[in-house]
């Protein structure tokens, strides 16, 4: 025992003073460019957002956002390495620099954004979600009140865990949280009957249900427990990267607003080139001005992005639209001029 502590003491004394406080400050954007590839943290387990398809590549809205970043930063949407991360792993991964940015259905909130919290910087919200509850139709449970005293399966290390607690505590209802580390386990626990209900973001519930053997036997309750604005994020204190991310997403929104799509982008470019009076379009597509350069990106980054992934609406329809495997009504996720919440400031 004494030898053990003497050992520790000697060791720690030897280590004192080996801290070197010189700090390199290079933007992660430069790192990405010199590596010529973007390392993007995703979930990998949510159909419609990020999921491995049958030929072994990732697909989904979150994945397309990564591809849009790669197209803007490196000129090629395929220069992305995807890192599947669990909810508890994701912030450590970004802080330690294992990944460049996070596009993993992450809720934007104060604690995560603040420099004294998780210290992230969030890009604009790409999906407005809310937390919900899913129950078996046969259980005849219809509201939060009827779940009092029951077990609820929840993923640990998520805002979900806190929201479910807030919802029940506010109404002074007792409940038992059964916490699992990832969504697949939450689903397994729920399907095996450990819990009366499972809770997650409503989009994730819909996605999970799409994979059930009998999706119609499960209903998502009308109770919406929280606002869950999902947004990509990067490490705090790096304005170059966070600005670039922000404006790539605004470009996706603006392109939808202006009706610029993957298929007509070249025509639009011709129109812009031939009509010097169409200033906003020319600036947006980088025909004139230096908007791209101001972000540390090529001036034609918008063209690169739209020609490789399409605009926001095209992405949405591909993965979450009515004909996709995980149809989710667009609702709040429409562009502002169609009645939704997605709004981009001007490209001036």
């Amino acid at each position: 025992m004494r030898r053990f502590f003497t050992g520790i003491l000697t060791f720690s004394m030897l280590l004192t003073g080996c801290v070197n406080s010189s700090i390199r400050t290079q933007s992660r954007l430069e790192v990405i460019k010199s590596r010529d590839s973007l390392i993007c943290g995703v979930s990998g387990k949510i159909p419609g957002f990020s999921f491995l398809n049958s030929n072994g590549s990732y697909q989904g809205l979150d994945v397309d956002i990564c591809k849009a970043f790669a197209a803007a930063f490196l000129g090629n949407p395929n220069k992305v390495q995807f890192r599947p991360l669990t909810a508890p792993e994701r912030f450590t991964a970004i802080r330690t620099g294992e990944i460049d940015l996070l596009s993993r259905n992450t809720t934007f909130n104060l604690s995560r954004d603040s420099s004294k919290g998780n210290g992230l910087i969030f890009a604009p919200i790409i999906f407005h979600d809310g937390q919900g509850l899913m129950v078996k139709k046969s259980s005849n449970l219809n509201s939060l009140y009827e779940l009092a005293g029951k077990s609820i399966c929840v993923g640990s290390g998520t805002t979900t865990e806190q929201n479910i607690n807030d919802a029940f505590e506010e109404k002074s209802l007792p409940y038992t949280p059964i916490k699992y580390q990832d969504l697949n386990q939450v689903v397994a626990g729920y399907l095996q009957g450990r819990c009366a209900a499972m809770t997650s973001d409503r989009s994730q519930l819909a996605a999970a249900r799409s994979g059930f053997r009998n999706p119609k036997a499960h209903i998502i309750l009308d109770d919406v427990l929280s606002k869950e604005p999902l947004a990509p994020a990067s490490a705090g204190g790096d304005q170059l990267l966070s600005d670039a991310m922000r404006w790539v997403i605004f470009a996706l929104f603006t392109a939808e607003e202006k009706g610029i799509t993957q298929s007509n982008i070249n025509q639009k470019l011709e129109i812009a080139k031939n009509n010097p009076q169409m200033k906003p379009l020319r600036r947006f597509l980088g025909v004139e001005g230096d908007l791209g350069e101001k972000l540390g990106l090529p001036n034609d980054f918008v063209i690169k992005v739209i020609s490789s992934t399409g605009n926001y609406g095209e992405m949405y329809n591909r993965h979450l639209g009515p004909n996709s495997k995980v149809p989710i009504p667009r609702g709040l996720n429409k562009i502002h001029n169609s009645g939704g919440l997605h709004f981009a400031p001007p490209f001036n």
Partner: peptide, 12 residues
């Protein structure tokens, strides 16, 4: 470990 995991996530 599980509780620590949640705490790390909440407190960063």
């Amino acid at each position: 470990y599980a509780i620590n995991d949640t705490i790390i996530n909440q407190t960063g």
